[in-house]
Design a protein around this nucleic acid. Structure first.
Length: 488
RNA sequence: GGCGCCAUAGCCAAGUGGUAAGGCAGAGGACUGCAAAUCCUUCAUCCCCCGGUUCGAAUCCGGGUGGCGCCUCCA
């Protein structure tokens, strides 16, 4: 069976058939850079990072475009507050966004266009839409898209125009410049002090929706395969993109629309306007990037996911287990053993199961479940006697599958010891533990243990345990980790 | 008011017609000086409620209840 993708446009899972076999054009709406990004953005871009990784990993050639909205009301307003030039504010936040994405292990898109670099394309597109009779210039220098000229309007969001007009009349003031209250702006005139570009309609700047139509056409063509973004973009943003792009080109715009669910806090959408958001860097200070990815990928991308300390702790435990497993498999293979057997059949089975899960609308939750089974088996095989027939072959097959999965999920790619220590650093920071003192006690206990003073050693273990420290004794000495307990 | 989504064990979470993946927590066991880690076993006769379709439904249909989202900027 091949890849199936849930398409918002049809409301169904469909076989994924790209325009050109083996090639995929993919556009994901990026951020408006007026502020730092929050964990809700992280969810979106991690989800599509995995889509990108999976498509590439399965041998397709992918062109991934993700834009920056760097001119917009919010940027202008924020810049006015802070006294920055809008362009400086935008540039600063783009840099911050890049750092956040890098921290989260997201691959770079192939193109990251900025709106301000595409003004000529945008103007040309608006002119074309006007030329086709789907937009009109208003006396004040605005250009509006004419909803009434586009009968398919509402197709993506499954809205009925009449209902919307009725609903809108209650909350939207009649705008004398608009022919229909639902008409949306393609080009808006600049107010004094605002950034502007010369255009056939006077000095102004692009409306919000037109940029994505212009940039996707420029970098992917007028018709392309995948367009993604958060569920909140379905209406009006993506609905308007469809109207603009089709009004201009007359062609199909996007074949598959993908939308990710929200990150909730206390069962409520995380958003700037509600003020209940956590920035990516705030979260990164508390939890390891791989733990965050594990958290985000443990739920299907279309479902809501709840941000909570408990869930992040659980995800941390899950990733820690996997990382430790990778470390043990590598150590066992480095240690070697008699060869000549056959790898256990279960490894291939799990590999297939992961592929099937991913082919089913990128079901990372199910895929990770299978990966857990593999880790269980891995630990079992590591612990078996060296001469067990097929041990080396099985472990080596497991390592291969783990590496493959690592490439898809963007986890388990770095040296296990390094990552484990980074995880512990965050645990220590979160609980405010005194590492120097902890290690002092551990050394003291080790000495007592060497002297066979087990009563003393146990007392010290108990003391450390009360501070959430778990000790792991080995012939070489004791290592330690912070015990995470489920809160609430 | 219009449109849409969701409801699976203490918790997180897959599963969209064939008889409940996976994880956390819990219980028992192996291992350990004691632990931790690891492994094994166990943990939903049942999937919000009521009807219906079917040989068979968590999965389809109708109704209800509860939660969420979009309709204004929003990943």
């Amino acid at each position: 069976m091949g890849l199936k993708i849930f398409n918002t446009l049809t409301g169904r899972k469909e076989d994924f058939v790209p325009l050109q076999e083996g090639k995929v054009g993919m556009y994901v709406c990026g951020v408006t850079v007026y502020d730092l990004s929050h964990i809700g953005h992280a969810r979106c871009y991690v989800a599509f990072d995995v889509v990108y990784r999976y498509l590439r990993g399965s041998g397709r050639s992918v062109r991934y475009v993700r834009n920056f909205t760097d001119v917009d009301d919010k940027i202008i307003n924020r810049a006015a507050q802070t006294g920055d030039a809008p362009v400086d504010l935008a540039t600063r936040n783009i840099e911050a966004f890049h750092r956040d994405m890098d921290s989260l292990g997201c691959l770079h898109p192939d193109v990251e266009p900025r709106v301000t670099d595409h003004i000529p394309e945008i103007i040309a597109l608006v002119e074309r839409i006007i030329g086709n009779g789907h937009a009109y210039a208003a006396p004040d220098g605005s250009v509006y898209f004419s909803i009434d000229s586009f009968p398919q309007y509402g197709q993506l969001s499954k809205r009925n125009l009449d209902d919307m007009v009725a609903g809108a009349s209650e909350r939207v003031d009649e705008d004398p410049n608009k022919r229909n209250p639902l008409d949306f702006v393609l080009w808006k005139p600049a107010k004094p002090g605002e950034p502007w570009w010369e255009s056939p309609w006077g000095r102004g700047r692009p409306g919000w929706h037109i940029e994505c139509s212009a940039m996707s056409a420029r970098h992917l063509g007028e018709t392309f395969d995948i367009h993604g973004g958060g569920k909140d973009l379905v209406f009006p943003h993506h609905e308007n993109e469809i109207a603009q792009s089709r009004a201009a080109s007359g062609k199909e715009f996007v074949r598959y629309w993908l939308h990710n669910g929200f990150v909730n806090v206390d069962q409520e959408k995380m958003s700037k306007s509600l003020g209940n958001f956590f920035t990516i860097r705030d979260v990164l200070a508390l939890y390891h990037p791989e733990a965050i990815r594990m958290f985000l990928l443990s739920t299907h991308y279309r479902s809501p996911i709840n941000y909570s300390a408990r869930n992040l702790d659980e995800a941390t435990g899950r990733i820690e287990y996997m990382i430790e497993t990778v470390g043990k498999v590598e150590a066992a293979l480095a240690d070697g053993g008699p060869e000549g057997g056959e790898a256990a059949a279960d490894v291939a089975r799990v590999r297939g199961a992961i592929g099937e899960a991913m082919d089913d609308d990128f079901n990372t939750a199910a895929a990770l479940g299978h990966l857990f089974e593999l880790c269980r088996a891995a630990n079992d095989w590591v612990a078996r006697k060296r001469k067990t027939p097929g041990r080396i072959e099985t472990l080596s097959a497991i390592r291969k599958v783990l590496a493959e999965a690592a490439g898809i999920f963007g986890i388990l790619e770095r040296p296990p010891a390094t990552v484990l220590s980074e995880i512990r650093d965050r645990d220590v920071a979160r609980l405010g533990l005194d590492v120097v003192d902890i290690e002092r006690v551990i050394a003291e206990r080790w000495a007592a243990r060497q002297a066979k003073d087990f009563a003393r050693a146990d007392a010290l273990r108990t003391e450390l345990s009360a501070r959430n420290i778990d000790l792991m004794d080995s012939p070489q000495g004791s290592t330690w980790r912070v015990r995470r307990q489920a809160q609430e």
